[in-house]
Design a protein around this nucleic acid. Structure first.
Lengths: 185, 185
DNA sequence: GATGTATTCTTCAGCGTCGAAATTTAGCTT
DNA sequence: AAGCTAAATTTCGACGCTGAAGAATACATC
């Protein structure tokens, strides 16, 4: 009945067990590196689950939330073309068409042709869409504050610093290459 | 023609710009918290792109790689049932059926019925599958070492420590609740 | 001003995933 | 041993995304 944590084939092993397994199966492994990488991945995953729950509470999907974010962060008057949105979110214009369809139906955005250039379409945030984003941000900031609660100001600074250094390194090493990037921050 | 980084609606703004946009649109925001969270998300995304390129080089998909990882980390004799694999990878048994179909066709795993309990199916890593995993690990560890290259041993320790602390916090706050977890480390 | 090319968006077919129903086998009860 | 319940896997229908083809508009060149 009880979970046998040591040998259980079920859900997720503790991080330490997993690293031990890596070392067992792959000799030239720096456990410290693996610890950092695995923790990063796992942490991100858990955070996405948490965000997903929060957006669900608000009656929207994570996909909706991403579009709202992109529009809000673009600044007033909160307008973008579908293909700009697609680039920003890391998906194809085809997918954006459908997302926008749905979000128009939900009243989060409007879609209209650009009269000055009728090939273009303008997606604009509605007040209701903006309000949804604000609600989501309120939930998210509470969660994020809670997440970092155990870290002192000095530790937060050090963590932010270290992450930015890693980010620079990976961005330097990857000259974009047109790869799809999925999610946004 | 040139990217106008300040106002460009294109791909991704620099992290600092994005945080400035957040502060502009949402007053009660701790920029330090947002920096950490955004850097985490962005870093993870870039890393996944990098892993995707590496697996593509080896002629497999990231989905294949995840299954190989789960099997290898389960330890010799590298066998698991489809539903255990599904739990471990955070997807439904239905999806596992199709993944296994593909991977059997690629020669990475075998599928056979368990003779002692004929409801069960046993998915077993082939030597070729194990070799693929090793190749992927070799590429991954090079990349990961490179990623952390700028951090001193003390900084690495501090980073790992901090990440684990965050992880504990988020795991404590989320009593699982059956949420699908997608990717693994 | 007509034609050709580029740009933007939408439509279409294919694939992977999910949720639920169906199928097969095991174990228990009477 | 016949039937009931539970467990593991596969099948089926729906949805979102991708890549490629199609449609509509703008811009340049002749």
């Amino acid at each position: 009945m009880g979970d046998t944590p040591g040998t259980g084939t079920g859900a997720e092993p503790a991080l330490e067990e997993q690293i031990a397994a890596y070392q067992r199966e792959f000799q030239d492994l720096d456990p410290q590196v693996e610890q950092i990488v695995s923790a990063l991945s796992r942490l991100n995953r858990r955070m996405n689950v948490a965000y997903g729950r929060q957006t669900a509470e608000l009656g929207i999907t994570n996909a909706d939330w991403e579009v709202l974010k992109a529009l809000v962060l673009s600044g007033a008057p909160y307008r973008m073309g579908p293909s700009d949105l697609a680039k920003r979110l890391g998906l194809t214009p085809a997918a954006m068409t459908h997302r926008i369809d749905r979000m128009v139906a939900e009243g989060l955005v409007t879609r209209e042709r650009d009269e000055s250039n009728r090939v273009r379409v303008i997606v604009e945030l509605t007040p209701a869409g903006r309000e949804k984003w604000l609600e989501a941000m309120r939930l998210a900031t509470v969660f994020e504050g809670d997440l970092l609660q155990d870290l002192s100001p000095a530790e937060r600074t050090a963590l932010g610093e270290a992450l930015i250094r890693l980010l620079r390194r990976v961005e330097h090493a990857q000259p974009d290459a047109g790869g799809r990037l999925s999610d946004l921050d």
